[in-house]
């Protein structure tokens, strides 16, 4: 049994996480059974499974940021990205798997924001794992109903004259927002521009970072 701390903080100030001393759930047992069977029957190997986990963990918003920065610099590429974002991402050499991707462009008149009200669909191959809040019931239920309030809590306040397009990722498509290119970035390289493209700006809960003077 863990020592009973009255304040639930470790000496270093972190909250304790309870040991997982509970029995396996039905689905955990099912996952282990299926995985072990697949290995025993030589359909896959433990090495292959670990390599896939490593590949999933290696995905990060830097992939999406590179795509956005290229779209800012290369108008022909942006046209291809808006027409077929999967093909345009593959053209840059990114292995996005079978993902069906749609790119949405923010403009002076329109701000795009992405949510999955039914579960937590997210363009993982382009942005890595979703943040915890993206999967929360609060974000999922509020974003379609009060997107302006949600955005203001992320520090983004939009004037009434701007239209918001909320994209509910309900089925087979995944979405990436192309944020507006910040002012004063005309002389920056594509790599330097990519560093301004945050994960949240590609979900639509943020905007691209202004360059440091």
């Amino acid at each position: 049994m863990p020592h009973d701390h009255h304040d639930h903080l470790s000496p270093s100030g972190h909250p304790y996480r309870a040991d997982d001393d509970t029995p396996l759930s039905y689905w955990q047992t099912m996952e282990i059974a299926v995985r072990e069977l697949l290995v025993e029957k030589d359909i896959t190997t433990a090495e292959e499974i670990n390599a896939q986990i490593d590949a999933m963990d290696a995905r990060s918003p830097a992939i999406g940021a590179a795509v956005v920065a290229r779209a800012w610099c290369d108008p022909e590429f942006k046209i291809r990205l808006l027409a077929d974002a999967s093909a345009a991402s593959r053209e840059m050499g990114f292995d996005i798997g079978p993902m069906h991707l749609i790119a949405l462009e923010n403009t002076a008149d329109t701000h795009n924001i992405v949510v999955c009200t039914l579960c937590s669909c997210y363009p993982r191959n382009l942005l890595g794992l979703p943040p915890d809040w993206y999967k929360s019931r609060a974000y999922r239920s509020r974003t379609v109903k009060e997107p302006r309030k949600v955005l203001s809590e992320f520090g983004v306040t939009l004037p009434d004259r701007m239209r918001i397009r909320v994209h509910d990722s309900t089925a087979d498509m995944r979405y990436v927002v192309i944020p507006m290119r910040p002012k004063g970035t005309e002389d920056l390289s594509q790599d330097a521009l990519a560093a301004l493209v945050t994960r949240d700006s590609m979900i639509g809960t943020g905007i691209a970072t202004a360059p440091t003077a």
Binding site: P147, R148, D160, V166, D168, A171
Partner: peptide, 21 residues
């Protein structure tokens, strides 16, 4: 948004887009 949430819409001219079969 105004067609989905009626009077409760924050801004009736905002849009919600979803994939529907």
């Amino acid at each position: 948004a105004g067609d989905v949430w009626d009077k409760n819409a924050e801004n009736p001219d905002d849009m919600i887009e979803a994939e529907i079969y």
